[in-house]
Design a protein around this nucleic acid. Structure first.
Lengths: 147, 147
DNA sequence: TAAAATTAAATTGCGTACAATCTAATCATA
DNA sequence: TATGATTAGATTGTACGCAATTTAATTTTA
């Protein structure tokens, strides 16, 4: 086989790709969260949604979706579940009846007290040097920024 | 609020976490693959499965699952779909009747010719310096290696 | 200002992910 | 060699993730 052809084919190896370790790593980290999140009866996606709510207290579904890079097809059922659990409320906006306002509840705020343990536990679980973590963070946001 | 308490709460911000950009980035890259994969009528997961098959030609579902970090719950329906499309065959192993052998077909091999364009197209799509890419690759496999 | 365009959520449908369970085959060993 | 343990896949059930479509509300503009 010609050398160029072989090189082309090599690029189709899983081990030549960046996308694959990124995809596998993302799933792996989420898997490592699971035991901690199970204690709070939250899935990973519900957890990142709650993280935004803990910070912002109240916001439109649209804005939440922009923060999380998720659309209404994912968020609508997820937020209904968080409402069932009593962590948020869902109410139509007065100013714009198209928009739905998500607000954190008392119980949702309470949950935060249990959740604060998680980042530390995860930090111990993923062993990276501080410089490695910082660089990884920077590169990932560089890729996301290209959107 | 006490300073330590605030720091604890800050760790619960989406912007303080590594997991979130990793998760968002993984989805974003897969999203960027979509137009190219649509041309081949493959999903991303089907594509990485085919990447292994292009390299190995034939293997057990179990080994494929180990390569891709996927279990039979994901692979069984996925491989049935690839079989329907005519890219692989699924046959019981002679030596061990529990095992299922996945083998690439003529049509599956043909598909590789169209797929070789994808890594180059994606490289142009995700703009990282070579050192950045190399570093990212190394760190991701470091995290995966901790499994 | 009435019609057209746009926008925000919800809905539908398909394809993962993965835990948990089940079934059948194989292995280990008492 | 019978039987208990292990293993490989398949199945079931829950929860995304996202494209495409729908519905209702708002904005634009002819």
């Amino acid at each position: 086989m010609k050398k160029e052809k072989q090189e082309e084919y090599d690029s189709l190896k899983l081990s030549s790709q960046l996308c694959f370790p990124l995809y596998a790593c993302s799933k792996e980290i989420i898997r490592r969260y699971k035991p901690y999140l199970d204690d709070l009866d939250l899935t990973y996606t519900q957890y990142i949604a709650m993280m935004v709510m803990w910070e912002k207290k109240s916001m439109h579904v649209k804005d939440l979706g922009e923060q999380l890079y998720l659309d209404s097809g994912t968020l609508t059922p997820l937020l209904k579940k968080l409402e069932q659990k009593g962590y948020v409320t869902r109410t139509k906006s007065r100013e714009d009846e198209r928009a739905l306002v998500i607000s954190i509840t008392e119980a949702g705020e309470k949950l935060k007290k249990d959740a604060v343990k998680i980042p530390a536990a995860m930090g111990a679980c993923v062993r990276l040097e501080p410089e490695e973590a910082a660089f990884l963070y920077k590169i990932l946001y560089k890729i996301l920024g290209e959107i």
